[in-house]
Amino acid sequence: MHITQLNRECLLHLFSFLDKDSRKSLARTCSQLQDVFEDPALWPLLHFHSLTELKKDNFLLGPALRSLSICWHSSRVQVCSIEDWLKSAFQRSICSQHESLVNDFLLQVCERCPNLASVTLSGCGHVTDDCLARLLLSCPRLRALHLENCARITNRTLAAVAAHGCALQTLHVDFCRNVSAAGLRSLRAACPRLALRAEHSAAMIPDQSPWAPGTGASSRKPLLH
Rank of each mutant, 00 (worst) to 15 (best):
L158I: 12
C10T: 13
L51N: 06
P222C: 04
L60T: 03
D57T: 11
S209C: 14
C113I: 03
C110Y: 06
D39R: 06
I153N: 10
S67E: 10
W85V: 01
F48G: 08
M1T: 15
V161A: 05
V77P: 00
L86N: 11
K24D: 00
V119I: 13
P222H: 04
G165F: 02
H98I: 11
G125Y: 03
P206F: 01
L45T: 07
C166S: 14
V102D: 04
R220E: 06
S25N: 07
V77D: 06
Q32R: 14
S96T: 07
Q32K: 14
R152S: 05
L145S: 03
S201Y: 00
A181Y: 06
M1D: 13
N149V: 00
L121R: 08
S201P: 03
L223R: 14
Q91H: 14
C95I: 09
H49I: 00
R156F: 03
T4I: 14
R92D: 09
G62I: 06
R28S: 14
Q208S: 14
R220G: 00
A195R: 15
N58H: 15
A189N: 14
E9F: 12
T154R: 11
K56N: 08
A151Q: 12
P206S: 11
A189E: 15
V179P: 01
C139A: 07
L121V: 04
A160W: 07
C80I: 00
L132C: 06
C10D: 12
T157F: 11
R143D: 02
V77N: 12
R197K: 12
S81C: 13
R188Q: 14
A190L: 11
G183Y: 01
L135D: 02
R8G: 09
A167C: 11
N103T: 09
R188M: 10
L147G: 07
P210I: 10
S118R: 11
K221P: 01
L137A: 13
L60R: 04
P44D: 04
C166H: 13
P140E: 02
